Amino acid sequence: MASLRNLLFVLLLTLGGCASDPPVQIAASTWQRVDNDIAAAAQTARSQASEHALAAMDRWMDLVYRQTDDEFIPWFSSYWTQQWLSIKVSWYKLSAGGEKDPTVSRLALYLQEQYQDRVLQPVAEDTDPEQILHSTTAFYVRQLDQRLPAIARRHGVPDEQFEQRLKAIKAIDQAPGASLYQVLHAKPLAELPAYKALLLHIRSEPRGVGNWSDDPGMSLVAQRTSARLVDDLTTSGAASLVSAAVGSTAGMGISLGVALFTAISRANERPETEAQLRTNLNAAFDEEWLQLMRRTDRGVLAGIHHLSGQIEGSLSVPLRYQPAH
């Protein structure tokens, strides 16, 4: 019994000692070095995520170019498409009372819709700027998550205190907001409410990743192409009036001659037409591609720029660690 009492006494002393152990005191200078290392890790992660986005956007560009060459340009320049577009122009002009500007605008919108359906949507089944935005932001978070544990070990900061520091660092400002700790531990990131709010904000920016195809450059290409088609139809319409004036038999011959001449002319002009359309489309696309890479508020790097800006901004405020009691 005496031995049992002694054992219990020693056990109580041990437990009491553990309960009264004070938290490890980390010097302010150590916390400053920790914050500097977190900021450096965030910058490195941002740089690597930017390279990831660039590679993904280069691949997307190649797919769009290929789809444009394989599907849209051959469709647009074919004889039967040109005839169908002429019919649409006739209908548009009739609806617009013969006015040119509304007819051009309606045909331009139709061409943009066709480009969306024949090029952008098929490519989007593989990748598009919005998907690249998601993958780039997730890549940034993974890179940061891999680097942070080593910082705590390097400076001898206990896990509990390091987690408290991460919880004090703001990572997403969009309501309801999220700390760096929450972002790192969100599995998956896409389910975090603050991250959803951030994506919604980015997507709503004019000419952002969700609606970049409304770019003025793309619209201008469609407007110019539409105007040329309308002018071609006007010339054909004048020939039809002449054929009607000279009588049915001669008129039929004139109409057939005009149709044959138009078909031959378009066939001869097709390589030049395709080359010009390709040049115009690629120039407009290249400009928008650059905007999606450069703009930090609405492009594919918007997510990582928001997170890194919030994180590095929070780290500029010195930590006053208060251990939990």
Rank of each mutant, 00 (worst) to 15 (best):
E99C: 03
I311E: 01
L229I: 12
Q310W: 04
M218C: 08
E205H: 09
A55W: 06
V119A: 01
A245G: 10
Y115M: 14
S226I: 02
A41C: 06
R5Y: 14
I264K: 09
A324H: 08
K88S: 13
V183Y: 00
P188W: 02
D35L: 02
P22S: 12
R5Q: 14
Q48T: 15
G237T: 14
T68E: 08
P22H: 06
D58C: 07
Q146K: 10
H325T: 15
W80K: 14
S226C: 02
A244T: 13
P23R: 03
Y65M: 15
D215R: 04
I169T: 07
N282P: 04
S47P: 03
Q276P: 04
A244W: 07
A194F: 00
E71C: 09
E99A: 08
H52C: 09
R203M: 09
S3I: 12
L189Y: 05
R33I: 07
Q116N: 13
P149S: 03
R118T: 10
R278I: 07
L133E: 07
A39F: 05
Q116H: 10
V141H: 00
L13P: 07
Y65K: 15
K170A: 13
R59E: 13
P23I: 02
A45S: 09
M57E: 05
S240I: 07
L13N: 11
I38R: 00
D286L: 12
L85M: 12
M252L: 11
I254N: 00
A171Q: 02
Q83I: 14
E160Q: 11
T14R: 11
K170H: 12
A259Y: 01
L256I: 06
A239H: 08
W80Y: 15
K196F: 04
L85A: 13
T296F: 01
A197W: 06
L292P: 00
D128P: 00
G257S: 04
G17F: 01
Q223G: 07
R266I: 05
T225W: 05
R33L: 12
W84D: 15
S314C: 01
F9D: 15
S265K: 11
V157D: 05
Q131M: 05
A40D: 10
D35G: 04
V246L: 06
L307Q: 05
V123A: 01
L109F: 13
K93V: 07
D117I: 12
G237F: 13
T81K: 11
Y195L: 04
P323H: 03
Q223Y: 11
A124M: 06
Q67S: 15
Q291R: 13
Q322G: 05
C18I: 12
T14P: 04
A238S: 12
E288M: 10
L7M: 12
Q146T: 11
T103C: 05
Q143G: 09
L199A: 04
W84M: 14
